[in-house]
């Protein structure tokens, strides 16, 4: 299954290109800050509102801060938030979904009604409320996003587990006396890995969007720490006089989101069970 999915993914040029771009973005987010000549909050009043130059590739902002540096750090923020939130989503979604699907009956009912309630609640409002209660900060933000985005994954995992647990190889496992833990983790879940990976790869841009939306309304990471949302918000104030301040953050952010989405598309097609 893995070999076939991988081959199919490689045949999709757009997805492979996006995948390479995603890897580059991740590398930049981790290594970039060490290679940059400026810090994200280094103020330089002698060089405000500068357009792109050799010294400042992407120009500077209203306080003379290097936009490239701020972008690289924004990328880092976005990655941290997205991967942090996705880890919570992964753990909570898989645990709830697998438990509900495998146990069935009352446990399933209870967990799924709880999931329904979470699903019905406007998640952005929930994020805002959580941050209002717990305070601003990176940790709070990804906990808030994680706590609202596991619902979809839980439903997906439950449906898949329900489908697979009636297959005969699961019965064979019971017949030979394998433990429930073994059956869930070794027999069932590896078959759900494809859909999980696909959901996660779509979840990353989703989490980034939510984070920047929170920044836009002033509930994101606290300044002067940069994030795409904060940069775009700042940039749009000066868009008529200094368009580079909006252009670069918006472009980079858009490409980041697109790359994750296209990669997700490729993965979804690669794991599509219909043409296996």
């Amino acid at each position: 299954m893995w070999v076939r999915a991988w081959r199919k993914f490689l045949r999709n040029k757009l997805a492979v290109l996006s995948g390479i771009f995603v890897v580059l973005l991740i590398l930049t987010a981790f290594v970039g800050p060490f290679l940059l000549p400026y810090t994200y909050d280094g103020v330089d009043y002698a060089a405000v509102y500068q357009g792109p130059s050799l010294k400042h590739w992407f120009g500077t902002d209203e306080l003379g801060r290097d936009i490239l540096s701020r972008l690289v750090y924004s990328l880092r923020t976005a990655m941290t938030v997205a991967f942090g939130a996705e880890s919570i989503t992964l753990v909570a979604g898989v645990a709830v979904g697998a438990l509900a699907g495998y146990m069935g009956g009352r446990v399933d009912n209870l967990l799924m009604r709880f999931t329904d309630i979470m699903f019905a609640f406007p998640s952005f409002l929930f994020n805002v409320m959580l941050i209002a209660v717990m305070g601003r900060g990176m940790l709070t933000i990804f906990i808030a996003i994680g706590l609202t985005s596991w619902v979809g994954l839980a439903r997906l995992v439950r449906a898949e587990v329900l489908k697979i647990k009636s297959r005969e190889f699961v019965e064979a496992g019971h017949a030979m006396g394998a433990s429930h833990w073994d059956i869930v983790t070794r027999y069932i879940l590896p078959n759900v890995l494809g859909p999980i990976i696909v959901t996660m790869s779509f979840g990353v841009p989703g989490a980034m969007m939510t984070e920047s939306a929170l920044s836009l309304i002033g509930m994101g990471v606290a300044p002067p720490a940069p994030s795409f949302g904060a940069l775009i918000t700042a940039g749009q104030r000066f868009v008529l006089s200094y368009p580079h301040m909006l252009l670069w953050p918006a472009l980079i952010f858009a490409f980041t989101l697109l790359a994750f989405t296209w990669m997700g598309d490729g993965l979804r097609d690669a794991f599509d069970p219909r043409d296996q």
């Binding site: 005969e168 190889f169 019965e171 064979a172 017949a175 030979m176 006396g177 590896p190």
Partner: peptide
């Protein structure tokens, strides 16, 4: 005790592909 007993009684299924762990 049940686990031990299961060693004595095994089953062969109808659908040979579905009865094997695919991965």
């Amino acid at each position: 005790q049940l686990r031990e007993m299961r060693r004595q009684m095994q089953i062969v299924f109808q659908d040979p592909f579905s009865s094997l762990v695919p991965h």
